[in-house]
Design a binder for these strands. Sequence first.
DNA 1: ATGTTTCATGCATACGTTTGCGCTGCTACA
DNA 2: TGTAGCAGCGCAAACGTATGCATGAAACAT
Lengths: 341, 341
Amino acid sequence: MAASGKGSGERATVVTLARLAGVAASTVSRALKGDPRISLATRRRIASLATARGYMPNVLARTLASGRSGLIGLVLGSVENPFYAELMQEAVAQASTRGLRLLLLHAGAGAMEDRTAEALLQYQVDGCLITSAELSSHAGRICAAHKVPVVMVNRVPLLHASAVACDNFQGGQAIADMFGAAGLRRFAVIRGNPDSSTSLERERGFVERLTADRLQAPLRLEGGSTYLGGFAAGQAIARMAKPDRPDAVFAVADIMAIGAMDAFRLAGLAVPKDISVAGFDGIAASSRPAYDLTTVAQPLHEMVTRALDLLNARIADTDLPDETVLLRGMLKVRGTVRRGA
Amino acid sequence: MAASGKGSGERATVVTLARLAGVAASTVSRALKGDPRISLATRRRIASLATARGYMPNVLARTLASGRSGLIGLVLGSVENPFYAELMQEAVAQASTRGLRLLLLHAGAGAMEDRTAEALLQYQVDGCLITSAELSSHAGRICAAHKVPVVMVNRVPLLHASAVACDNFQGGQAIADMFGAAGLRRFAVIRGNPDSSTSLERERGFVERLTADRLQAPLRLEGGSTYLGGFAAGQAIARMAKPDRPDAVFAVADIMAIGAMDAFRLAGLAVPKDISVAGFDGIAASSRPAYDLTTVAQPLHEMVTRALDLLNARIADTDLPDETVLLRGMLKVRGTVRRGA
DNA sequence: ATGTTTCATGCATACGTTTGCGCTGCTACA
DNA sequence: TGTAGCAGCGCAAACGTATGCATGAAACAT
């Protein structure tokens, strides 16, 4: 049998199908969409012809004619933080079931920004999902100028855009409450990327709740939202004299919490006996027995669903007002926090 | 007024620019490409007009006319293994500098395969990078039928396709040599996904070299290329009575080695004092002080470069024969292997 | 001064699809 | 029997770009 198996050589188009069916190309186009103006009999005939010939619509041509590409730009920052890899995977899976495809764009530094934004326009994306802190303002502005709807994920919008995020503030508070209830009294917070609203909100929720409860204000260490940053912060904490040393550490991202735990372990500090640890995100690694990390898990599936909903609505109606959806994360108390009072 | 309609709100097209420059659209098209047939003066004039108007070519229209989309399909499997996340990031970065964009496709189970393959054709991808074991045969066949060049990364081709991979066999041998030189004598290998040629080759290299050196054939455990699989295998090993227990474990992927190390640690087994461990891939986590894992690092950057080169060549000339590039990995001896003889 | 190149550009058409509008017949109602 | 209404379909014009071929003019050689 021939390499192609199906088609008799040429790629099937609406025109070829039309010729075969003895109708006009427009009829084929409409029939394939189930347009009720075409009789059921004709629709069936064309449909079976299409599958027989292995017809695949040329999405690009459709875009040109209709203005809709079915393409969503997914702008990623670094995926060093596994949370973003998980987010991406979820986005790909859900977009695919909705018949959307993702154009993957990397938001590197500086000059790349323009290239990234260019691509968004050149490929006529219908909308855009942004998960990167750095380029949000620039690309966001460009998208707004060209009427491309934008939804930020895990970010609050700095500009004209909608957003879906976890209620980071509330999550930070929840951690503070939990530490307090466990009888912990000396705190540290490992901060994230200072440009990320997400990190700041988590920290703010934590700190404000401690203050409100008249608990000691936490020591603040920089972690930069990376494993290495968390590790370094953990080392710094481990080096402190016992009386000064915090008995509970909140890292505003799991990946940093994991780094800190590794540092503690290497320094001979036991978790949670000597020091309690909590993170935020609920990445897969947090549930590994080796860490069993207490954390606030982000509702990843729901976040992506809502983000695509928001985007879809704004693609259908460009004039919809911006909207921010805040979803509550789920506190998962696991083994890294000392029990009881 | 209808004739002029110069409103800067209008999206600039070749036609718009042509009208403004007082030339034909074809001249604009050629000028923007730097076609030497157009005089330098005209080219300059049009170029400046284009930037002034913020002209962005419509890639989709270009594709329709020229047949080249500049789009590369990137077919991913699960990114549970961080190696693939790193690979993806590298691919995005390099593709972007070459002016290629990536259409992200997820290779889920079963039914998704068809949807995935459909998308490849519908969006007229110029070529396709496949990193997923499961769907390689199916999607590969479809691509071949439609003359879409395919390059497998980290896979050897089962079918009509080119490929770039690390020399997995040689890497497995290198691990065996290193274990032997360290005086280790009782071995275990934690196997990967049984459908993945990569995993099998690593294992084969390891086993054959041990055999060739008249060393004991290794115990074989299943790890399924996941953290959890590695962890379970580690637990199984840790449960063994000391005299039977291997003194060296080769996990054919770092993520499994890390799982096994966690299991050892939890079981009170010290690495490398009680047991030596080696992995394969060189993922970021392997270099963390908490693991400091001996491994064979894959030349990620080089692999992606070669893969894109292969793809480019086959896009330019569809009749180029398939080619498989094997790159040597780099053995990184770190702290998880007992020193000396 | 005439014929021949070379250069710079325009014309037309193609790519595959969508979509507004118009054209047939047929049915039904008066 | 005439005519309005409607179901079913075709025509043709987009969408933005690329490209083979034709064209006109200038430069060159004869």
